[in-house]
Write a protein that binds this DNA or RNA. Structure first.
Lengths: 337, 337
DNA sequence: CGGCCTGATCGAAGCGCTTCGACAAGTTCC
DNA sequence: GGAACTTGTCGAAGCGCTTCGATCAGGCCG
């Protein structure tokens, strides 16, 4: 491995000069800079990450804690993770991948060892165990998701309340009076994952406002579970004509089941999904949907974290405005029987 | 931040003694060890990762390069990535997440900076640009996937040839004589991703052996694309009664389309999928399938990499044997018309 | 024209850890 | 009973980098 000292010798300057060329923290004459840069090229020099971290107490690594669970829609997680990784690179950071398995201890370990300069947490629960540790660690941190008490922590998330409201507004605008929400798996609500509850809150609020009746049912996803959920919904509310689906694993089963039951979409029943655009566009009926802006969330999270590391942190909650794309799965409610 | 020296002082020993307690590289008396461990607890000491990396030239980090592309089934990637991260932790390693974006340069950067001790590459192409750099870097490395020339590199992958053969064998055993393979997107083949081609090779070989006719068609996935592919297949080979599907995005569309065409599964047509068990079990018809052992692949990759770092590397190709699970989508071929 | 400021460079100190050699104090063995 | 080990501990040297003065050569000002 080539070292700074070797580069310095090759360029006929001191080690510190090379360091300043690299960091730009002091002015260097054009001729010296060129000479040094040429030597760096020639020798194929790469600064040693450990030495750099030790000397500067900056690792240029951002830790990303992803949930271990697979009861939530994985592609969204992956998309966020990839967006985080690529955005981080454009700011000169690498990303360390932590799974939830280690739990809150991971926060302590990473902060304690100075392995990462900052952390991004995904799948944040309303009362998340990791948050006290995070505050205490005094490191830059951004949450993707919104806990009950976000004080002192920067958060990035889709505005799920507005999302829920938007879905209801759309359906109500089409004259639907009875709406069912097919939600995430029950475990997601039990764990008090913020986004799921907030969506329902938004749905309820807008329903009240527009005088629409709402029935919310968790659903495990998959055919069998969705069939059961759907049967119970129609049992309880036979007049249901609008669906809001917030569970990717229930989308396709739902469409199939409705078809099998002879309910046409959107003539008899309208469906709005909360899911990535790709899923909505590729479903058997092109779905009217509110997209989950996974990329945008990952990108914003990194930008916030980088801002915090640069001392320009906001410590604020940033909610992304939902956007509803009308496709082929929603239409006017059928005339009342 | 608490340092080694502070722990040493607190425990009344020298710094090196604390270091040896931590690493176990020299014998330490029980009493001293206890005292040091107690001090570590009390002070909440965590070794500084950078300092450790610098002094030992070991970062205890494994870099994982995941593809940036999303034309391949993402959940499998995610499952592998998570398995890698959790397995790595059990061996004392953290995982650095690199996306394909940086391309081959990432290999050079990571190796050059000693940021990671080893690399795991996913989505390896037959002629992968990263491989020469990897060999040259002289770092421990494991590929998940199988390039054309794996010499000198440890590889872990599902035995896709055997997988293809197994699918055909299963269908042939049920008396199917005309089989269609619905494959990955054309781009996957153009890029010469090993697994896709190897599956087809396995299919062809076993078909020859059993006297079965095979038609292979790439497919983009989604409804529209799958419909087109399916139409062309029946057009060309009206007698097709068996399908092998290696594209998760085509599975559900295919089942729906067959149903719409009045072809019952498995009475008229049998379908074998190559996909994660979860997808197979949750599909609208429970699918006979060969599972993609994502977790196992991630786990084995880490174990190989750890072995290499410990100097017990094999440098060999490890192909995991496929397992076919019979579910409800395959049965005897219908009597010839 | 002497003092001062600016710009470019250097030297040295250290960041917190690992590891090697040294050494004192037992143990073992013939 | 001492040579030859073994065991447990320490001190010091460095790993490769950043960064803080310090230095030195010019340029500028009154």
């Amino acid at each position: 491995m080539v070292t700074l000292a070797e580069v310095a010798q090759h360029a006929g300057v001191s080690a510190s000069t090379v360091s300043y060329v690299l960091s730009g923290k002091r002015s260097i004459s054009a001729s010296t800079r060129e000479r040094v840069e040429k030597s760096i090229q020639r020798l194929g020099y790469h600064p040693n990450a450990g030495a750099r971290a030790l000397a500067s107490s900056r690792s240029n690594i951002i830790a990303l804690m992803v949930p271990l669970r697979t009861d939530m829609y994985v592609p969204v997680m992956m998309e966020i993770a990839i967006a985080v990784a690529t955005t981080a690179r454009t700011h000169g950071y690498d990303v360390l991948l932590l799974t939830g398995e280690e739990g809150p201890a991971a926060v302590r370990r990473i902060a304690g060892s100075s392995l990462a300069d900052a952390m991004i947490l995904m799948d944040v629960e309303l009362q998340d165990e990791r948050l006290p540790l995070l505050r205490e660690a005094g490191r830059a941190a951004v949450l993707i998701g919104l806990p009950a008490d976000p004080s002192g922590l920067t958060c990035v998330d889709l505005d799920f309340e507005a999302t829920g409201a938007l879905c209801v507004e759309h359906l109500a605008g089409f004259g639907h009076r009875e709406i069912a929400v097919i939600g995430e798996a029950a475990a997601v609500y039990e764990r008090h994952t913020g986004f799921a509850e907030r969506t329902v809150d938004g749905v309820r609020a807008k329903a009240r406002e527009t005088g629409v009746r709402v029935l919310h049912r968790p659903c495990e996803g998959g055919y069998a579970a969705t069939a059961g959920t759907l049967a119970r919904i129609f049992d309880e509310r036979p007049g249901t004509t609008g669906f809001v689906v917030q569970n990717e694993a229930a989308v396709e089963p739902l469409l199939n089941l409705l078809r099998q039951q002879g309910r046409a979409v959107p003539e008899d029943v309208s469906v709005v999904a909360i899911c990535p655009d790709q899923v909505a566009a590729q479903a058997s009926v092109r779905l009217t949907s509110v997209a989950i802006p996974a990329q945008e969330m990952g990108r914003r999270a990194v930008e916030q974290v980088v801002a915090e590391l640069a001392g320009r942190g906001t410590g604020e909650v940033e909610l992304l405005a939902p956007e509803l794309t009308v496709r082929a799965s929603t239409g006017p409610a059928p005339a009342r029987a």
